[in-house]
């Protein structure tokens, strides 16, 4: 979970970065859009049942790596900042952390067959 706390802080940092580092409107817009999304996905994945949401930040991190070149940043500080945050976010997104609870097979168990919750329900007596 510590990894997703850091990712949430990195998202917040992106929201503040244009004001702190100085950036033109295009760079600022990119950071102001991607930052809240990264922070939100990271916060949602603080809980074990939704830990998988941390992976939604992988494409956002990849976008931060290529955005300076696709959008044509003319600001070296912003390029370094976005790419550095991108690398950190991608790496930390893959850190699953401890999941102690069991969730009947999780989200895929809603459509898959022979899942832990279905098997356990068969073992239990009728209520």
């Amino acid at each position: 979970m510590w990894a997703q706390i850091i990712n949430a802080l990195l998202g917040l940092w992106l929201m503040a970065a244009p004001a702190v580092l100085g950036a033109d409107k295009m760079i600022a817009n990119n950071d102001h859009i991607v930052g809240p999304l990264i922070a939100s996905f990271a916060i949602i994945s603080w809980w074990e049942a939704t830990r998988v949401v941390r992976l939604y930040n992988v494409p956002l991190g990849l976008w931060l790596l290529v955005a300076p070149w696709i959008l044509g940043y003319d600001n070296t500080t912003a390029i370094v900042n976005d790419m550095l945050v991108g690398v950190l976010v991608i790496g930390l997104s893959f850190v699953k952390g401890k999941v102690e609870g069991k969730f009947g097979g999780g989200w895929s168990a809603i459509w898959k067959e022979e899942t832990p919750h279905a098997q356990e329900a068969r073992r239990q007596p009728r209520i």
């Binding site: 949602i44 809980w47 049942a49 939704t50 969730f103 989200w107 809603i110």
Partner: peptide, 10 residues
């Protein structure tokens, strides 16, 4: 969102 979703999953 996170704490509400486990009940939804169940």
């Amino acid at each position: 969102i996170g704490p509400a979703m486990d009940e939804m999953l169940a």
